[in-house]
Design a protein around this nucleic acid. Sequence first.
DNA 1: GTCTATAAATCGATAGAC
DNA 2: GTCTATCGATTTATAGAC
Lengths: 198, 198
Amino acid sequence: MSTSRGPGRRPGSPDTRAAILDSARGLFAERGLKGTTIRAVASEAGVDPALVHHYFGAKDDLFLAALEIKVDPRQVMAPVIAAGVEAAGENLMRVVLRVWDDPEIRLSLLAIVRGVFDREGQRMVRDGFLGIVLGPVGRGLGLDRADERMVFVASQVFGLIMLRYVLEVEPLASMPADLVISTYAPTLQGYFTDDLPS
Amino acid sequence: MSTSRGPGRRPGSPDTRAAILDSARGLFAERGLKGTTIRAVASEAGVDPALVHHYFGAKDDLFLAALEIKVDPRQVMAPVIAAGVEAAGENLMRVVLRVWDDPEIRLSLLAIVRGVFDREGQRMVRDGFLGIVLGPVGRGLGLDRADERMVFVASQVFGLIMLRYVLEVEPLASMPADLVISTYAPTLQGYFTDDLPS
DNA sequence: GTCTATAAATCGATAGAC
DNA sequence: GTCTATCGATTTATAGAC
Protein backbone atom coordinates (compact mmCIF):
# COMPACT_ATOMS: atom_id res chain seq x y z
CA MET A 1 0.00 0.00 0.00
CA SER A 2 3.01 2.27 -0.47
CA THR A 3 1.97 5.52 -2.11
CA SER A 4 5.44 6.62 -3.17
CA ARG A 5 7.63 4.94 -5.78
CA GLY A 6 10.62 7.14 -5.30
CA PRO A 7 13.89 6.15 -3.66
CA GLY A 8 14.08 5.67 0.08
CA ARG A 9 12.09 2.58 0.79
CA ARG A 10 9.83 2.62 3.82
CA PRO A 11 11.50 0.82 6.69
CA GLY A 12 10.15 -2.67 7.15
CA SER A 13 7.39 -4.71 5.63
CA PRO A 14 4.12 -3.52 7.12
CA ASP A 15 2.99 -7.07 7.87
CA THR A 16 6.11 -8.06 9.74
CA ARG A 17 6.27 -4.81 11.65
CA ALA A 18 2.64 -5.05 12.67
CA ALA A 19 3.06 -8.66 13.70
CA ILE A 20 5.95 -7.75 15.97
CA LEU A 21 4.03 -4.86 17.49
CA ASP A 22 0.95 -6.99 18.14
CA SER A 23 3.02 -9.71 19.72
CA ALA A 24 4.83 -7.16 21.89
CA ARG A 25 1.59 -5.53 23.03
CA GLY A 26 0.10 -8.85 24.08
CA LEU A 27 3.18 -10.01 25.94
CA PHE A 28 3.80 -6.67 27.66
CA ALA A 29 0.14 -6.63 28.76
CA GLU A 30 0.41 -10.17 30.11
CA ARG A 31 3.88 -10.29 31.63
CA GLY A 32 5.04 -6.71 31.97
CA LEU A 33 8.26 -5.18 30.72
CA LYS A 34 10.79 -7.27 32.61
CA GLY A 35 8.83 -10.48 32.11
CA THR A 36 8.80 -10.08 28.36
CA THR A 37 11.91 -10.98 26.35
CA ILE A 38 12.74 -9.85 22.84
CA ARG A 39 13.08 -13.52 21.98
CA ALA A 40 9.54 -14.26 23.11
CA VAL A 41 8.17 -11.35 21.09
CA ALA A 42 10.02 -12.53 17.99
CA SER A 43 9.02 -16.15 18.52
CA GLU A 44 5.31 -15.35 18.85
CA ALA A 45 5.48 -13.09 15.81
CA GLY A 46 7.26 -15.83 13.86
CA VAL A 47 10.31 -13.73 13.04
CA ASP A 48 13.94 -13.51 14.03
CA PRO A 49 14.90 -11.70 17.27
CA ALA A 50 17.26 -9.44 15.36
CA LEU A 51 14.32 -8.10 13.36
CA VAL A 52 12.76 -6.69 16.48
CA HIS A 53 15.77 -4.49 17.02
CA HIS A 54 15.88 -3.68 13.34
CA TYR A 55 12.37 -2.24 13.42
CA PHE A 56 12.02 -0.81 16.90
CA GLY A 57 15.52 -0.36 18.27
CA ALA A 58 16.05 -1.01 21.98
CA LYS A 59 13.62 -2.88 24.19
CA ASP A 60 12.44 0.31 25.87
CA ASP A 61 11.60 1.82 22.50
CA LEU A 62 9.53 -1.22 21.64
CA PHE A 63 7.73 -0.87 24.95
CA LEU A 64 6.91 2.76 24.28
CA ALA A 65 5.69 1.84 20.80
CA ALA A 66 3.38 -0.79 22.29
CA LEU A 67 1.92 1.81 24.65
CA GLU A 68 0.55 4.00 21.88
CA ILE A 69 -3.17 4.38 22.43
CA LYS A 70 -5.63 5.01 19.65
CA VAL A 71 -7.74 7.43 21.68
CA ASP A 72 -7.10 10.90 22.99
CA PRO A 73 -7.92 10.95 26.72
CA ARG A 74 -8.87 14.61 26.67
CA GLN A 75 -11.26 14.09 23.80
CA VAL A 76 -12.92 11.14 25.52
CA MET A 77 -13.37 13.03 28.76
CA ALA A 78 -14.72 16.21 27.18
CA PRO A 79 -18.35 14.99 26.99
CA VAL A 80 -18.24 13.99 30.66
CA ILE A 81 -17.26 17.51 31.61
CA ALA A 82 -19.78 19.08 29.25
CA ALA A 83 -22.68 17.03 30.61
CA GLY A 84 -22.28 18.58 34.02
CA VAL A 85 -21.70 17.34 37.54
CA GLU A 86 -25.19 16.02 38.16
CA ALA A 87 -24.66 12.93 35.99
CA ALA A 88 -20.86 12.81 36.07
CA GLY A 89 -20.80 9.50 37.94
CA GLU A 90 -22.73 7.58 35.33
CA ASN A 91 -21.14 9.39 32.40
CA LEU A 92 -17.65 8.65 33.65
CA MET A 93 -18.49 5.01 34.19
CA ARG A 94 -19.81 4.74 30.63
CA VAL A 95 -16.57 6.14 29.25
CA VAL A 96 -14.42 3.84 31.37
CA LEU A 97 -16.34 0.73 30.37
CA ARG A 98 -16.48 1.69 26.70
CA VAL A 99 -12.73 2.26 26.47
CA TRP A 100 -11.71 -0.80 28.46
CA ASP A 101 -14.14 -3.13 26.72
CA ASP A 102 -12.50 -2.31 23.39
CA PRO A 103 -10.12 -5.28 23.00
CA GLU A 104 -7.55 -3.37 21.01
CA ILE A 105 -7.35 -0.44 23.39
CA ARG A 106 -7.38 -2.76 26.38
CA LEU A 107 -4.05 -4.37 25.46
CA SER A 108 -2.26 -1.04 25.44
CA LEU A 109 -3.90 0.00 28.70
CA LEU A 110 -2.97 -3.31 30.32
CA ALA A 111 0.62 -2.84 29.18
CA ILE A 112 0.60 0.59 30.80
CA VAL A 113 -0.83 -0.70 34.07
CA ARG A 114 1.63 -3.59 34.12
CA GLY A 115 4.43 -1.21 33.30
CA VAL A 116 3.65 0.73 36.45
CA PHE A 117 5.22 -1.97 38.53
CA ASP A 118 8.30 -2.41 36.39
CA ARG A 119 9.84 0.90 35.48
CA GLU A 120 9.52 4.21 37.22
CA GLY A 121 6.04 3.92 35.73
CA GLN A 122 4.59 5.14 38.98
CA ARG A 123 4.88 8.60 37.53
CA MET A 124 3.25 7.51 34.30
CA VAL A 125 0.02 6.59 36.07
CA ARG A 126 0.19 9.19 38.80
CA ASP A 127 0.84 12.10 36.47
CA GLY A 128 -0.76 10.57 33.39
CA PHE A 129 -3.93 8.88 34.53
CA LEU A 130 -4.62 11.38 37.27
CA GLY A 131 -3.10 14.57 35.91
CA ILE A 132 -4.19 14.25 32.31
CA VAL A 133 -7.32 12.14 32.45
CA LEU A 134 -9.06 12.87 35.73
CA GLY A 135 -7.50 16.18 36.73
CA PRO A 136 -9.20 18.24 34.00
CA VAL A 137 -12.50 16.56 34.83
CA GLY A 138 -12.37 17.77 38.41
CA ARG A 139 -11.46 21.29 37.39
CA GLY A 140 -13.86 21.32 34.44
CA LEU A 141 -16.76 20.35 36.64
CA GLY A 142 -15.95 23.18 39.02
CA LEU A 143 -15.77 20.97 42.10
CA ASP A 144 -14.87 22.19 45.54
CA ARG A 145 -11.92 20.31 47.02
CA ALA A 146 -11.42 18.89 43.53
CA ASP A 147 -8.11 17.14 44.31
CA GLU A 148 -9.61 15.12 47.13
CA ARG A 149 -12.76 14.22 45.21
CA MET A 150 -10.88 13.10 42.10
CA VAL A 151 -8.51 10.92 44.12
CA PHE A 152 -11.51 9.20 45.67
CA VAL A 153 -13.01 8.71 42.22
CA ALA A 154 -9.70 7.43 40.90
CA SER A 155 -9.36 4.89 43.71
CA GLN A 156 -12.70 3.31 42.83
CA VAL A 157 -12.10 3.36 39.09
CA PHE A 158 -8.61 1.94 39.44
CA GLY A 159 -9.77 -0.81 41.79
CA LEU A 160 -12.53 -1.76 39.39
CA ILE A 161 -10.08 -1.92 36.50
CA MET A 162 -7.67 -4.05 38.49
CA LEU A 163 -10.25 -6.63 39.52
CA ARG A 164 -12.26 -6.74 36.30
CA TYR A 165 -9.54 -6.49 33.64
CA VAL A 166 -6.18 -7.29 35.24
CA LEU A 167 -6.93 -9.92 37.87
CA GLU A 168 -10.15 -10.97 36.12
CA VAL A 169 -11.96 -11.75 39.34
CA GLU A 170 -15.40 -13.31 39.03
CA PRO A 171 -18.23 -12.48 38.99
CA LEU A 172 -16.97 -8.99 38.13
CA ALA A 173 -15.00 -9.97 35.03
CA SER A 174 -18.00 -11.53 33.30
CA MET A 175 -20.57 -9.01 34.51
CA PRO A 176 -22.51 -7.13 31.82
CA ALA A 177 -21.31 -3.57 31.32
CA ASP A 178 -24.71 -2.11 32.19
CA LEU A 179 -24.74 -3.82 35.56
CA VAL A 180 -21.23 -2.60 36.32
CA ILE A 181 -22.19 0.92 35.37
CA SER A 182 -25.33 1.00 37.49
CA THR A 183 -23.42 -0.43 40.45
CA TYR A 184 -20.52 1.97 40.50
CA ALA A 185 -22.17 5.12 39.16
CA PRO A 186 -23.76 6.01 42.53
CA THR A 187 -20.42 5.60 44.30
CA LEU A 188 -18.64 7.94 41.89
CA GLN A 189 -21.55 10.36 42.00
CA GLY A 190 -21.19 10.47 45.77
CA TYR A 191 -17.53 11.37 45.51
CA PHE A 192 -18.45 14.08 43.01
CA THR A 193 -21.29 15.77 44.84
CA ASP A 194 -21.81 14.49 48.39
CA ASP A 195 -20.56 16.43 51.37
CA LEU A 196 -17.02 15.44 52.30
CA PRO A 197 -16.10 14.62 55.91
CA SER A 198 -13.92 17.23 57.54
CA MET B 1 22.06 -15.01 72.43
CA SER B 2 22.24 -18.72 71.61
CA THR B 3 20.54 -20.75 74.30
CA SER B 4 22.13 -24.09 73.40
CA ARG B 5 25.79 -24.95 73.69
CA GLY B 6 25.54 -28.42 72.29
CA PRO B 7 26.67 -29.50 68.86
CA GLY B 8 24.71 -28.48 65.81
CA ARG B 9 25.15 -24.76 65.67
CA ARG B 10 22.11 -22.68 64.69
CA PRO B 11 22.31 -21.74 61.02
CA GLY B 12 23.44 -18.19 60.53
CA SER B 13 24.10 -15.26 62.78
CA PRO B 14 20.76 -13.76 63.72
CA ASP B 15 21.91 -10.25 62.87
CA THR B 16 23.12 -11.09 59.40
CA ARG B 17 20.11 -13.21 58.62
CA ALA B 18 17.72 -10.50 59.76
CA ALA B 19 19.63 -7.87 57.78
CA ILE B 20 19.30 -9.93 54.61
CA LEU B 21 15.61 -10.52 55.21
CA ASP B 22 14.92 -6.84 55.87
CA SER B 23 16.81 -5.83 52.76
CA ALA B 24 14.94 -8.42 50.70
CA ARG B 25 11.55 -7.31 52.02
CA GLY B 26 12.22 -3.69 51.18
CA LEU B 27 13.50 -4.41 47.68
CA PHE B 28 10.76 -6.91 46.86
CA ALA B 29 8.19 -4.36 48.04
CA GLU B 30 9.74 -1.64 45.92
CA ARG B 31 10.80 -3.46 42.75
CA GLY B 32 8.98 -6.78 42.77
CA LEU B 33 10.45 -10.23 42.33
CA LYS B 34 11.98 -9.89 38.89
CA GLY B 35 13.23 -6.38 39.56
CA THR B 36 15.14 -7.46 42.64
CA THR B 37 18.50 -9.21 42.25
CA ILE B 38 20.25 -11.34 44.83
CA ARG B 39 23.23 -9.08 44.40
CA ALA B 40 21.18 -5.98 45.25
CA VAL B 41 19.78 -7.64 48.37
CA ALA B 42 23.27 -8.58 49.51
CA SER B 43 24.68 -5.16 48.70
CA GLU B 44 22.03 -3.31 50.70
CA ALA B 45 22.47 -5.71 53.60
CA GLY B 46 26.22 -5.22 53.46
CA VAL B 47 27.00 -8.89 52.97
CA ASP B 48 28.25 -11.17 50.24
CA PRO B 49 25.80 -12.46 47.61
CA ALA B 50 26.75 -16.03 48.43
CA LEU B 51 25.47 -15.55 51.97
CA VAL B 52 21.96 -14.96 50.68
CA HIS B 53 21.92 -18.41 49.16
CA HIS B 54 23.56 -19.83 52.23
CA TYR B 55 20.75 -18.62 54.48
CA PHE B 56 17.68 -18.76 52.28
CA GLY B 57 18.48 -21.05 49.37
CA ALA B 58 17.02 -20.16 46.00
CA LYS B 59 15.61 -16.75 45.11
CA ASP B 60 12.02 -18.00 45.27
CA ASP B 61 12.59 -19.29 48.80
CA LEU B 62 13.88 -15.87 49.83
CA PHE B 63 10.80 -14.28 48.30
CA LEU B 64 8.48 -16.57 50.23
CA ALA B 65 10.41 -15.84 53.42
CA ALA B 66 9.95 -12.09 52.84
CA LEU B 67 6.20 -12.57 52.43
CA GLU B 68 5.67 -13.90 55.94
CA ILE B 69 3.08 -11.71 57.64
CA LYS B 70 2.92 -11.24 61.37
CA VAL B 71 -0.88 -11.23 61.47
CA ASP B 72 -3.48 -13.90 60.87
CA PRO B 73 -6.03 -12.57 58.37
CA ARG B 74 -8.85 -14.69 59.78
CA GLN B 75 -8.18 -13.44 63.28
CA VAL B 76 -8.16 -9.82 62.16
CA MET B 77 -11.42 -10.19 60.27
CA ALA B 78 -13.28 -12.04 63.02
CA PRO B 79 -14.34 -8.87 64.91
CA VAL B 80 -15.69 -7.35 61.71
CA ILE B 81 -17.94 -10.35 61.24
CA ALA B 82 -18.94 -10.47 64.88
CA ALA B 83 -19.95 -6.80 64.96
CA GLY B 84 -22.64 -7.39 62.38
CA VAL B 85 -23.51 -6.05 58.96
CA GLU B 86 -24.90 -2.69 60.12
CA ALA B 87 -21.42 -1.27 60.83
CA ALA B 88 -19.37 -3.57 58.61
CA GLY B 89 -18.30 -0.74 56.33
CA GLU B 90 -16.64 1.30 59.03
CA ASN B 91 -15.28 -1.72 60.88
CA LEU B 92 -13.66 -3.11 57.75
CA MET B 93 -12.10 0.24 56.96
CA ARG B 94 -10.64 0.46 60.47
CA VAL B 95 -9.03 -2.95 60.07
CA VAL B 96 -7.62 -2.14 56.64
CA LEU B 97 -6.10 1.13 57.78
CA ARG B 98 -4.71 -0.33 61.01
CA VAL B 99 -2.96 -3.17 59.22
CA TRP B 100 -1.61 -1.11 56.33
CA ASP B 101 -0.44 1.76 58.52
CA ASP B 102 1.80 -0.63 60.43
CA PRO B 103 5.16 -0.05 58.69
CA GLU B 104 6.46 -3.55 59.29
CA ILE B 105 3.37 -5.30 58.00
CA ARG B 106 3.13 -2.91 55.08
CA LEU B 107 6.42 -4.04 53.56
CA SER B 108 5.28 -7.64 53.39
CA LEU B 109 1.92 -6.64 51.97
CA LEU B 110 3.58 -4.44 49.37
CA ALA B 111 5.82 -7.33 48.37
CA ILE B 112 2.73 -9.49 47.96
CA VAL B 113 0.93 -6.89 45.85
CA ARG B 114 4.02 -6.34 43.71
CA GLY B 115 4.46 -10.08 43.38
CA VAL B 116 1.04 -10.29 41.79
CA PHE B 117 2.41 -8.86 38.60
CA ASP B 118 5.51 -11.03 38.44
CA ARG B 119 4.73 -14.67 39.03
CA GLU B 120 1.43 -16.43 38.67
CA GLY B 121 0.69 -14.29 41.69
CA GLN B 122 -2.70 -13.50 40.26
CA ARG B 123 -3.92 -16.54 42.10
CA MET B 124 -2.27 -15.43 45.31
CA VAL B 125 -4.38 -12.28 45.46
CA ARG B 126 -7.48 -13.67 43.82
CA ASP B 127 -7.65 -16.75 46.02
CA GLY B 128 -5.79 -15.29 49.00
CA PHE B 129 -7.06 -11.77 49.43
CA LEU B 130 -10.56 -12.57 48.23
CA GLY B 131 -10.97 -16.21 49.22
CA ILE B 132 -9.33 -16.08 52.62
CA VAL B 133 -9.74 -12.49 53.75
CA LEU B 134 -12.97 -11.18 52.28
CA GLY B 135 -14.79 -14.39 51.39
CA PRO B 136 -15.47 -15.45 54.99
CA VAL B 137 -16.62 -11.92 55.78
CA GLY B 138 -19.32 -12.06 53.14
CA ARG B 139 -20.51 -15.47 54.27
CA GLY B 140 -20.16 -14.66 57.96
CA LEU B 141 -22.32 -11.59 57.61
CA GLY B 142 -25.01 -13.64 55.91
CA LEU B 143 -25.25 -11.41 52.88
CA ASP B 144 -27.48 -12.09 49.92
CA ARG B 145 -25.55 -12.22 46.65
CA ALA B 146 -22.42 -12.32 48.79
CA ASP B 147 -20.02 -12.95 45.91
CA GLU B 148 -21.11 -9.84 44.05
CA ARG B 149 -21.11 -7.64 47.13
CA MET B 150 -17.67 -8.73 48.28
CA VAL B 151 -16.16 -8.15 44.85
CA PHE B 152 -17.53 -4.61 44.88
CA VAL B 153 -16.08 -4.11 48.36
CA ALA B 154 -12.76 -5.57 47.25
CA SER B 155 -12.55 -3.27 44.24
CA GLN B 156 -12.81 -0.19 46.44
CA VAL B 157 -10.42 -1.48 49.09
CA PHE B 158 -7.87 -2.57 46.51
CA GLY B 159 -8.07 0.74 44.65
CA LEU B 160 -7.58 2.64 47.90
CA ILE B 161 -4.54 0.52 48.76
CA MET B 162 -3.04 1.03 45.33
CA LEU B 163 -3.34 4.81 45.36
CA ARG B 164 -2.52 5.42 49.02
CA TYR B 165 0.24 2.89 49.67
CA VAL B 166 1.63 1.71 46.31
CA LEU B 167 1.42 4.74 44.03
CA GLU B 168 1.37 7.15 46.99
CA VAL B 169 -0.91 9.63 45.28
CA GLU B 170 -1.56 12.90 47.09
CA PRO B 171 -3.56 14.05 48.91
CA LEU B 172 -4.65 10.49 49.70
CA ALA B 173 -1.23 9.24 50.82
CA SER B 174 -0.85 11.90 53.53
CA MET B 175 -4.49 11.96 54.59
CA PRO B 176 -5.20 11.17 58.26
CA ALA B 177 -6.55 7.68 58.80
CA ASP B 178 -9.78 8.96 60.37
CA LEU B 179 -10.59 11.02 57.31
CA VAL B 180 -9.93 8.07 55.01
CA ILE B 181 -12.15 5.87 57.14
CA SER B 182 -15.05 8.30 57.23
CA THR B 183 -14.80 8.83 53.48
CA TYR B 184 -14.81 5.22 52.37
CA ALA B 185 -16.94 3.64 55.10
CA PRO B 186 -20.25 4.78 53.53
CA THR B 187 -19.20 3.37 50.15
CA LEU B 188 -18.39 -0.04 51.60
CA GLN B 189 -21.53 0.04 53.71
CA GLY B 190 -23.54 0.62 50.56
CA TYR B 191 -22.03 -2.42 48.90
CA PHE B 192 -22.82 -4.43 52.02
CA THR B 193 -26.43 -3.45 52.58
CA ASP B 194 -27.87 -1.35 49.74
CA ASP B 195 -30.13 -2.87 47.13
CA LEU B 196 -28.14 -4.17 44.19
CA PRO B 197 -29.14 -3.31 40.61
CA SER B 198 -30.54 -6.23 38.69
C1' DG C 1 14.38 -7.18 4.25
C1' DT C 2 15.83 -11.34 6.73
C1' DC C 3 18.84 -14.21 9.15
C1' DT C 4 23.52 -16.10 11.28
C1' DA C 5 26.91 -15.34 14.47
C1' DT C 6 28.55 -13.30 18.26
C1' DA C 7 29.79 -9.69 21.41
C1' DA C 8 28.93 -7.88 26.07
C1' DA C 9 26.68 -7.68 30.22
C1' DT C 10 24.01 -9.67 34.05
C1' DC C 11 22.33 -12.93 37.00
C1' DG C 12 21.45 -17.22 39.76
C1' DA C 13 23.76 -20.71 41.87
C1' DT C 14 27.71 -23.65 43.48
C1' DA C 15 32.27 -25.17 45.20
C1' DG C 16 35.64 -24.52 48.29
C1' DA C 17 39.18 -21.87 51.00
C1' DC C 18 39.70 -19.46 55.42
C1' DG D 1 29.92 -18.22 59.53
C1' DT D 2 31.92 -15.49 55.79
C1' DC D 3 33.97 -14.56 51.56
C1' DT D 4 36.58 -15.49 46.83
C1' DA D 5 36.21 -17.37 42.53
C1' DT D 6 33.73 -19.13 38.96
C1' DC D 7 30.49 -21.84 36.24
C1' DG D 8 26.51 -21.93 33.31
C1' DA D 9 22.55 -19.99 31.58
C1' DT D 10 19.91 -15.88 29.67
C1' DT D 11 19.41 -11.78 27.62
C1' DT D 12 20.10 -7.45 25.06
C1' DA D 13 22.21 -5.66 21.28
C1' DT D 14 25.29 -5.32 17.25
C1' DA D 15 27.93 -6.54 13.00
C1' DG D 16 27.67 -8.39 8.76
C1' DA D 17 26.53 -12.01 5.20
C1' DC D 18 22.87 -13.21 1.84
